[in-house]
């Protein structure tokens, strides 16, 4: 009896090691697949003839259509930063530093990250769903049979458009955010507007701006790769059939992109500081 228990305990332990090993191998395999997918899709951006029209269409879809939501989020983020910043700084009598606090947190951190998260929610999910539906309704196979490379046709324009659009949306977010801080700090709480902008001018250096843009470029590649990858391989999931497959692919695309954006943000910040 005791032997049996020991045996089953042993098996349970071995089973969990087995599971852990299998999962690790799966994750490494998946990472490799995503890496190849990214490299292939990115390289095809530069294949001739250039797909200007399609890239512009995607810039419109991912960028122009996100304009309003990014502006709105930027405005309120800046406003709340102004509000919170003011009440914290006023305790130390340094409310004059509000402009610097708002601008630096936006340009270095919140701008790229929140822009990426918003674009994931608005455009990333629809990219995954659109490509997923094309996969399950054999439209990707149809492209393949017509000798039209589906990676070049579907994935590359979206990657290129993301690389163009993310820094621009981030810049928009930053500017509107700073204006939001101005609204609460200057208009509402009465800080001198000259001090607000002068502090920004003094404290923000080019390195902060390039750092923020570097982050937004990295997020552009991560978001477009993950969302396209999840949609493109909808059919490879164990439950990847029909509408359910597409819904799972969309959920994974959003969750994985968000997590990766935050993880990569930490890693990049630690290198940039």
């Amino acid at each position: 009896m005791a032997e049996k228990t020991a045996d089953s305990g042993n098996q349970g332990f071995l089973g969990s090691i087995n599971w852990l090993g299998r999962r690790t191998l799966e994750i490494i395999g998946e990472l490799g697949a995503v890496g190849i997918f990214f490299a292939w899709g990115f390289a095809l951006i530069f294949s001739l003839p250039f797909q200007f029209r399609k890239i512009i269409q995607q810039v419109y879809f991912i960028g122009v259509k996100s304009f309003l939501i990014i502006s709105l989020i930027g405005l309120f983020t800046g406003m709340v930063l102004g509000l919170q910043g003011y009440y914290t700084l006023v305790k130390f009598g340094s409310e004059g530093m509000l402009g610097a606090a708002v601008a630096l947190s936006l340009i270095r951190e919140l701008g790229p990250v929140l822009t990426a998260l918003m674009v994931i929610g608005r455009a990333g999910s629809s990219i995954a769903a659109e490509i997923g539906i094309m996969r399950i309704s054999e439209q990707i196979d149809a492209l393949d049979t017509m000798d039209i490379n589906p990676m070049r046709y579907l994935v590359s324009p979206r990657m290129a458009a993301s690389v163009i659009v993310f820094p621009m949306l981030t810049a928009l977010f930053d500017v509107i955010g700073i204006f939001g801080g101005f609204l609460t700090g200057v208009v509402l709480l009465g800080i001198n507007s000259g001090i607000y902008f002068n502090r920004i001018y003094d404290s923000v250096v080019l390195k902060d701006v390039t750092g923020g843009f570097l982050k937004s470029l990295a997020f552009a590649l991560i978001v477009s790769t993950i969302c396209c990858y999840q949609g493109y391989f909808t059919h490879m999931r164990s439950e990847g059939f029909g509408a359910r497959g597409v819904s799972l692919a969309t959920t994974s695309a959003v969750v994985i992109s968000c997590v990766l954006v935050l993880v990569v943000d930490y890693i990049l910040t630690s290198f940039l500081l």
Partner: peptide, 20 residues
């Protein structure tokens, strides 16, 4: 392979039209 594929057309059972 490319040349062979370009000489073919395939009509899918469920049509596989591009819905967008």
């Amino acid at each position: 392979w490319k040349q062979f594929k370009r000489s073919l057309s395939y009509m899918f059972q469920n049509n596989a039209l591009f819905d967008s």
